[in-house]
């Protein structure tokens, strides 16, 4: 564990807290992509259910995995049950087939071993890299976003962004190098760059997140 990875994980926790805060205080999921949330639930299920076959690294690791699986299911429940009337499916139209299909193909090409657990792990990594796209698509379509929603997306982007200095640190300090995680992680971070540009130039200067 190093400071970058710890801050990244912390940022991930903050993002989930922001999302839950937005939904429970406004009693709505307006502007939130159910599709992105469903993809994250799938990402966590395919990566973290390695708990079931004994992949226990530390209490920290196990507790985080359980939290991410549990909170993602709870978020899906909130969107689908109590806040269902506030969701507009007509703007959440990104085609999931392409993302899931692409991640599946990548997991068969790029994995560390042709075994079920390793392919599942690789699938979850590639799927996570693109899971935010339906959410960014909603923001692009509507041309704006509530500030709290942009803080959520920013915290999520910071999470994977912070993993990059973590990988640099681990490469030099520990000789650890995980090329699949690194390449997918860089792709994931690049996907956020456009968003971050507007977030830093507008939202953090007190303006509303609006596309030109």
């Amino acid at each position: 564990m190093n400071i970058f990875r710890f801050l990244g994980d912390l940022s991930h926790l903050v993002s989930i807290w922001l999302l839950l805060h937005k939904m429970t205080t406004s009693k709505s999921c307006t502007g939130i992509s159910f599709k992105t949330q469903a993809l994250y639930a799938l990402v966590f299920a395919t990566r973290y259910l390695d708990l079931l076959y004994g992949s226990w690294h530390s209490m920290y690791n196990v507790a985080m995995k359980i939290f991410f699986i549990g909170s993602s299911l709870y978020i899906l429940y909130l969107i689908k049950v109590p806040f269902k009337p506030t969701r507009d499916p007509a703007i959440d139209t990104f085609k999931l087939e392409y993302l899931v299909g692409g991640a599946l193909i990548m997991s068969l090409i790029a994995n560390y071993e042709y075994s079920f657990p390793e392919i599942l792990w690789s699938f979850s990594i590639w799927l996570e890299a693109v899971a935010i796209l339906p959410q960014l698509f909603i923001i692009q379509r509507t041309g704006e976003a509530e500030n709290i929603t942009t803080h959520y997306v920013a915290a999520l982007g910071a999470y994977r962004g912070l993993y990059i200095p973590n990988w640099l640190y681990r490469y030099f300090a520990e000789g650890f190098f995980d090329p699949i995680a690194v390449i997918a992680g860089i792709i994931q971070t690049v996907i956020y760059l456009d968003f971050f540009y507007i977030y830093f130039t507008k939202v953090l200067k007190g303006q509303k997140f609006e596309l030109p």
Partner: peptide, 10 residues
């Protein structure tokens, strides 16, 4: 066998 990282990251 495997060059797999230990997958100790989240």
């Amino acid at each position: 066998s495997t060059m797999s990282a230990d997958h100790d990251e989240l």
